[in-house]
Structures are given as structure tokens and as C-alpha cells.
Amino acid sequence: MAPALVERQAETEDRTFYALDTHEAFRKAGFYRILVPRRYGGYEFGADTFMRVAVALTRGCPSTGWMYTLGAAHALAAATIFPEEAQDEIFATGEFIAPATIMPSGSAVRVEGGWIVNGTWSYCSGSPYATHFMGHTLVSPTEGAPPEPMVFIAPREVWRRLDDWGQQLGLRGSGSHSITIEDGFIPDHYTIPGHMSQYSVADGTPGVRLHGNPEYGGGPLSFMNLESAVLAVGIAKGALDAYSDLMRTRSTLFPPVVGRVHDPDYQYWYGEAAGMIATAEAAILGAVRQWQEACAVGPEAFTAEMEMRLAGISRQSVQLCWHAVEGYLLPTAGSSSVRRGERLERTWRDMSMLHTHAGYAVFLAAKAQRELAKAHFGIPDGLAG
């Protein structure tokens, strides 16, 4: 599918999400069932298969890969942390597409059997074809107590997608629209106290007890961090493809004028970038295997240090991809190759946009390193010195 996605990058950006026939092709291929439990008609193929599909799609079209990945990935989290009653309902069709946001927003009022939720949540990647939405809001656990996060699942009929995406620097076709809920009823079994990224698997999970698959017992935070790095690898591989085409079709700028593919400098720039991207891919797929191996060991393997070590691998993988594109491919491709609409120009914009994502720009860029050191040396939270 990737070659066809390359050809449709421009129209995907104009539409702000991938086409309906692309969505139907993904459905037919079973992409939305990869992480859904077999109990509900899913394939339960595992994190490694899902991540490889994400890389392949993102390599063809970063916006499409981003929208698919951040819509389909959260089937794993939902199957891990939510109770059987909720899973029986949300996975009833065998497909689950749900953008998830980490920033608590809106409000929730307690009513009999659940909550009345109101609010708007931004950056809901995957929303155009989503079956559900996973968000956070703040609620007080008891009257007068300070508000705390609560994660909830909202079925499609409860929310509305806003037409507010497409003017950003990059990833203009990623379907990252805002979602708004007006007096939406969310039943209790569709809610969990706390923040999804801080969910502890130490005592086991509903997913493992229900499905018997250890991958439904892994740490949600580390899995979310792996997603960012996998997307960066896909984007960088697409940029390398574009550079390869230039190597084959263009000549050097200075004498002796030869095809770039025969020029030692271009050979070096290509080789250096290719090595960095291959290293990033090997690192992140290795991290995915580590995550799966930890799942097999059991919840005791998901220590804070282990989670932050995987975050560190994710960070370095993104950095390698960025340095390959920004340091070697973009500056040596030539200005005509980065005109608006050129594939290399688009991949640079998309990777630049990835750098503004809070998961990377805030958490992976700074907080994760400190948390890794604190976990390794046993420094309690809140102790600065």
C-alpha cells in the first residue's frame, strides 16, 4: 500500500485525513484488528507486528501513518486497563479506533450510574474514522477533595469532531482534529480513576485476567513512548526514499558533473543518513521486544527504571532520525527538492511537527531522563538534592 500512499500525500493534507477508500482498504487488510483481543474478533498479533505496520504506512505517508497509529494503538490500552463489561461493549464489532489525549480537559458531573461530561479535547489524532475517544478530565474523588485525573472512553455517538485541523506546519493530513462533548453520558464502567500514563500494572490487569495474554499487562506509558519513535523511523525512511530518487535522477552541482549516485560526497551523505536511520529502527524494534519480554515476565518487570529506560531508547531513536534528515538529507538535496509539495519538504515538516508533540518535546526530551536517574539511584519524588 505504501507506494499508493506516497502518491496521495498532497490530497491527504488537503483533506486533513486519509481517504475513505484508504480507510476501507485498512479495514479489509485487518489493520484495525491487530491489537484487538481474539475474544472479540481481533487478531491479537502483538506489539511487534503493529509497530512494523506503523513504520511501513508512515514511510509511505507520514500523515496517514500518524493518523492510523494513534487511532488504532489504543486498543491495547483499552484491552489492558478496562473491565470486562466495558470491553464486551467497546470491542463488540471487532474493530477499535480511538484517539487518546493526555491533557485533562472539560468537566464531569456525577450522576447515577456514571458521569455527564462536557468539554473539548484538542489533537485527537485518528478522529475522522474513530469508533471511540479516550480522554481525561479532572474530578474530585470525594466532596471537597482536590480534583484528580480520570480516564474515560466515549463512544462515537457521544462526541463530535470539529473542523479545526490542517493549518499546522506539518502532519496536516493526520486527522488530529479536536473532539467536543456536550452533556455526554459516560457510564461508570467506561471510566478509571487516575491518568492512563500512570496506570500501575503491579497487581496485574483486567486484560491479562480476561485474555490470558501477557501483552495486555504491559506498561501503557512505555508503549506510548514507543509509538513516537516508531513514527519518527517511518518518516525518516520516507525521507531517505525521496533522497534515493534524487540520487538516481540528478547530477552534482559542481564539476566534475556526474550522477549523484556516482559522487563520493553524495554516497557518504546517503550512507551516513541510512546508517543512522537503520540504527534508530533497530533500537526501537529492540525496545519493542524488550517491552514484550517484560510482559512475559510479569508485572514485576515493569519497574520505573525499566519504563524510563525504554523511554530513553525512544528519545535517542527520534534524535537519530532527526539528525539524519536535518543534518544530511535536507541540506544536500538542493533547494528545488524542498519546494512546497515535494516529498522531502513534506517529510521535514512532518518530522518538525513531531518535535512539538508533548510526549516528545516535554516528556522524552527532559523529564524521562531525570526519572530514569531517580529510579536507578532510588531518589524519591519531590527530593531535589
Rank of each mutant, 00 (worst) to 15 (best):
W322E: 03
A282W: 00
G271P: 13
E345W: 10
G271V: 01
A278Y: 04
A294K: 00
E326L: 01
P256E: 07
E281N: 05
A282N: 05
M308K: 13
R315K: 11
A324P: 03
R289S: 03
G327W: 06
V288T: 09
L320D: 07
R339L: 13
L310P: 00
R340L: 09
R339F: 08
R309L: 12
V288I: 15
R309M: 03
G298Y: 02
L330W: 14
M276R: 13
P264W: 10
Q316S: 08
Y328G: 03
E272W: 07
A304R: 15
R309Y: 09
A311L: 11
L246R: 08
A283K: 08
C295Q: 13
L320C: 14
A301I: 12
Q267W: 08
G271C: 06
A311P: 00
D265Q: 12
F302M: 11
L253C: 05
V258G: 04
H323R: 08
Q290D: 09
A280L: 10
E305Y: 03
E281C: 09
W291H: 04
G327R: 06
F302S: 01
G259E: 02
L310A: 05
Y268S: 14
I313C: 05
V288A: 08
W348G: 10
R250M: 15
V318E: 06
G259P: 05
S314I: 01
W348T: 08
G327I: 04
R343W: 10
G286C: 00
A273W: 14
Y266H: 11
A274T: 02
